[in-house]
């Protein structure tokens, strides 16, 4: 059917390996930042104080209803245009990042909204009785959150967390729009440079599948290591 030449993959292996590393680096950092932001947002949304709830809800609703690519463009193209005109140089330098950094910011902000919803469901699922038990032994509100709510919630949200992590990983592909040399960028470069379309895209597609599967496997192993259940 085609003249398949899988050697092309070997010839471009540096580009592919580099692509994998960048994709994983973006995933890891964004997931970490997004989780912290998401947890804070989740606490704000369940705090019962409207001055916290309203802005948190607005943030989540806004971010979840606009395309990730738009957020990427805003941060990567829009922000520098504004920052160097209106901000002092030191501040502009501090907030403007290169492609990969911009992508990490965009992913973190975007996924914070999704992770907020994951954690919120978790917080709501932690029974009143555990909180009462925590307070009755003299824990402060922060203590209850730190020692009771978060561990119990973490257990129940692990499956949704896994799905979100896999989505985030797949969405790192959008970084190719701002020329970050990640995996999809590599595939496109190989296929336009060599016209070995089939080999390039199937290889990269398979790599995404395998890594997505690995993320799932690691998270499930983590789930099994937690022996208690609620």
């Amino acid at each position: 059917m085609f003249d398949l030449d899988w050697n092309i993959v070997l010839r471009y292996q540096d580009l592919i390996v580099e692509g994998v590393i960048i994709a994983l680096r973006m995933t890891l950092i964004s997931f970490a930042i997004g989780s912290v932001l998401g947890l804070l947002l989740a606490y704000a949304r369940t705090s019962g104080r409207s001055w916290l709830e309203t802005p948190a809800t607005a943030y989540v609703e806004f971010l979840r209803n606009i395309p990730l690519l738009l957020i990427v463009l805003i941060y990567y193209f829009g922000l520098p245009m504004v920052a160097y005109k209106n901000f002092p140089d030191w501040l502009a330098d501090a907030v403007v990042f290169d492609g990969e950094g911009s992508m990490i910011v965009a992913l973190s902000l975007y996924y914070a909204a999704y992770l907020c919803e994951v954690f919120r469901a978790g917080i709501l699922s932690v029974g009143r009785r555990y909180l009462d038990a925590g307070k009755s032994i003299g824990l402060t509100n922060v203590g209850v959150a730190r020692y009771i709510t978060v561990p119990i919630m973490f257990r129940s949200v692990l499956p949704s967390l896994t799905n979100t992590a896999i989505s985030l990983f797949k969405d790192t592909s959008i970084a190719m729009a701002i020329a970050v040399p990640e995996l999809t960028f590599a595939a496109r470069k190989i296929s336009t440079d060599t016209f070995k379309v089939f080999e390039a895209w199937l290889t990269v597609g398979a790599i995404y599948l395998v890594i997505a599967w690995l993320i799932g496997a690691v998270m499930r192993a983590l789930e099994r290591r937690i022996k208690w259940s609620v």
């Binding site: 592909s173 959008i174 190719m176 999809t184 895209w201 597609g205 995404y208 599948l209 599967w213």
Partner: peptide, 8 residues
């Protein structure tokens, strides 16, 4: 479901 939309 395991492949990025963009790759597809």
């Amino acid at each position: 479901r395991g492949t990025p939309l963009l790759v597809l």
